[in-house]
């Protein structure tokens, strides 16, 4: 199965990269871009056919490695396969 995971900075953590992208948008003429937050996207192939097991593994990966709980939130976008 495949797990798709997103990791983002917590809302109150300053994201200078997102801000730079937002400013670039304005420079390029997209005046309507009010804010950009940059995050990380993971596609994880898991050697299981059991959806619940896949979700459990994905959750563990997020908690232990993919996200730092001090500064980041994570979410499993979907489990597919």
């Amino acid at each position: 199965m495949k797990a798709v995971v997103c990791v983002t900075l917590k809302p109150d953590v300053l994201d200078p990269q997102g801000r730079a992208i937002q400013r670039a948008c304005a420079t390029l003429g997209w005046d309507g871009v009010a804010d950009v937050r940059q995050g990380k996207y993971f596609e994880i192939q898991l050697q299981t056919t059991d959806r619940a097991a896949a979700e459990r593994m994905a959750r563990e990966l997020c908690e232990k490695l993919l996200a730092n709980p001090v500064i980041e939130d994570w979410r499993i976008e979907r489990i597919e396969g």
Binding site: L9, L14, P16, Q17, N68, V70, I71
Partner: peptide, 17 residues
């Protein structure tokens, strides 16, 4: 040390990039 939880807080990309 921060990632290990041996110290509090975290270190992120410099504000001015």
């Amino acid at each position: 040390l921060c990632e290990s939880g041996l110290l509090p807080g975290a270190l992120l990309r410099n504000q001015a990039l």
